[in-house]
Design a protein around this nucleic acid. Structure first.
Lengths: 327, 327
DNA sequence: TCAATATATACTCGAATTGAGCATAGTGGA
DNA sequence: TCCACTATGCTCAATTCGAGTATATATTGA
């Protein structure tokens, strides 16, 4: 009875590998050629099969091929979600074996750029332009998404459905004064997918007509959904765990730290309150040295107090927002 | 190339099905006979294989066999985590095919008891007695766990390791005034497992000597870990999403609601502040009717405002604690 | 050299939230 | 009628949060 219920599965591990380059949150992508020849050129998340013979645990499998493929030193690794929808991977249609993919979030520091490598760091907002509010409300939102959302609401069959659609759109996208919640990345993506506003929606439905809004392009397979899951998780996590330091150099100024949190959360923060918060939580300590290249008064350099990871349920950043006004 | 990397896997779906019976948080267990004959009688989480031919998505697979096995109407379903450690399931040793199991959290309301059914609802604190602080600090913690933790700390090889162990124990178990965090259920379980204080630790290591503290017993395979994951997730979730209502009858008094939140979080809450919070968030509305069987002044009955699920990022309960004193 | 312009850091102030407890209101039962 | 019990209303101080103002110390360019 041991093999009862066993099937020919392929278990893939997909990694959302995040690093912050400059002030931009980036994700590691590879050109999608081997995996899905019909879509050569599309960006894809790094992928590796889970080989049960070689790896005792899923995490070890992931670490092993990521290290081999990228040479990165992985800081923080967290399992995200397991995706198993039929048809998410064209390979299974040909071969018959179902592809299950387990998404992982990996935080690391940007390495030296290696021109020889096929992998590259891409600003994640290239895939989700509506998620970056650091320079005010994204134009893509006002000019392209919002009108289409309102269209979709109107197109409801009856009053009740219309109300429901309106509520849903309002919550996800902060319409009608509902307020934008930065960690609803996945909900927003799924709504856009559902109503056919992202490219992969029409692709997956096999349509030729494309009502999508033509952003910088989809990713291979369901990788944009996995990436959305990763961003959602990370945006949520920084609020209650000090994970951002995995993305930071060992020493930094408070503004440097703030810019990084802003990059991830996609919104501007109130500087004085941010510093108050960070210092009150005791997350960092001064190194005593001074950073002079600030273009103004020199800033004290800080380092992360690693001890705190073990201390009382170390918290994260409360994101003291500021009305997004100037750049 | 389609089947390249495909292996003979068995993908199992394990469900942590939660309902609150009386004032106790319960989980649905089945006697573990079919699945692991060597351990007949151990409680196991309901389990079903994922059959890719029959189900388009993992969620649908889960819903299908849970409904078939239990007849329950599933309210809330959430994927927890995917477990794939080698050796977590003895079947794979015999058969060769690796077992991957995807854990799910399911919230439901307690059904009519059905004596004919092999499934039964078990108080989850039977498996985690140290997690119930509603009647003060659990004796199991003071009398059995804490001494063993201190032993383990002392047994460290050197000063640094000792400090590290002390920190870890202090954080997880709130020793030395560090404060108990109710949602570290999984961390606590893993620490206990690691240092061999739970039964399955020695079992899994193939030892005959058993240094475990002999609580009400382990569960089959790694099911206690999965259950710990579920409890952790649920305890965390109630703080920022109104999921508890999936466990409540349609109408209830505020004390009733409070008792349920207390049951899940394992600690007592401050009554007046709890009510203030619930009302301020607008989570509930009065039905106008009165519950008289309270043994005191009658209480107003409330109902959950379902609309709020769609409204502004509906929050959960902030758990206004109270110093655990009287019962 | 000095003003303009940065950024860094300190401090303030009112509003809102939290933690804790007191006080009063309705019940049923001895 | 008094008591035990639960429900519900209200207060109050401590803390946190949001939004500034004010001051410090650099660089840059006229």
């Amino acid at each position: 009875m041991a093999a009862q219920g066993a099937h020919d599965f392929m278990i893939g591990l997909n990694a959302v590998i995040v690093a912050v380059v400059g002030d931009e949150p980036c994700v590691l992508v590879v050109p999608n050629s081997r995996e899905d020849p019909s879509r050569e050129g599309l960006a894809a998340l790094p992928f590796g099969p889970f080989e049960p013979g070689r790896h005792r645990t899923l995490d070890m499998g992931l670490r092993s091929w990521v290290a081999a493929q990228t040479g990165l030193r992985l800081g923080y690794v967290e399992q995200l979600y397991t995706f198993g929808d039929k048809g998410r991977d064209p390979r299974e249609v040909q071969g018959g074996s179902r592809v299950i993919s387990i998404g992982y979030l990996v935080l690391t520091r940007p390495p030296e750029p290696d021109p020889a490598s096929a992998t590259q760091w891409r600003n994640w907002y290239a895939f989700f332009p509506w998620e970056d509010w650091r320079r005010g409300r994204p134009v893509a939102l006002s000019e392209r998404i919002e009108p289409r959302l309102r269209q979709w609401i109107k197109a409801a069959g009856n009053r009740a459905e219309e109300r429901e659609r309106a509520e849903r759109a309002a919550v996800s996208f902060g319409l009608d004064g509902a307020g934008w919640s930065e960690d609803l990345v996945l909900e927003r993506y799924e709504l856009l997918y559902e109503i056919g506003l992202v490219e992969e929606a029409s692709r997956d439905r096999g349509k030729t007509s494309d009502a999508s809004i033509g952003f910088s392009g989809p990713m291979a397979l369901d990788h944009r959904r996995i990436l959305a899951t990763g961003i959602s998780r990370l945006r949520g996590k920084i609020k209650y765990r000090p994970v951002v330091f995995e993305l930071m150099p060992p020493e930094f100024t408070l503004l440097h730290l703030q810019r990084l949190v802003e990059a991830l959360s996609g919104k501007r923060l109130h500087k004085q309150n941010f510093r108050r918060l960070v210092e009150r939580e005791g997350l960092v300590e001064s190194t005593g040295t001074i950073e002079t290249r600030t273009g103004g008064r020199p800033a004290v350099r800080f380092r992360f107090r690693r001890e705190i990871l073990a201390e009382r349920s170390a918290v994260g950043f409360k994101l003291p927002s500021v009305a997004a006004r100037r750049g």
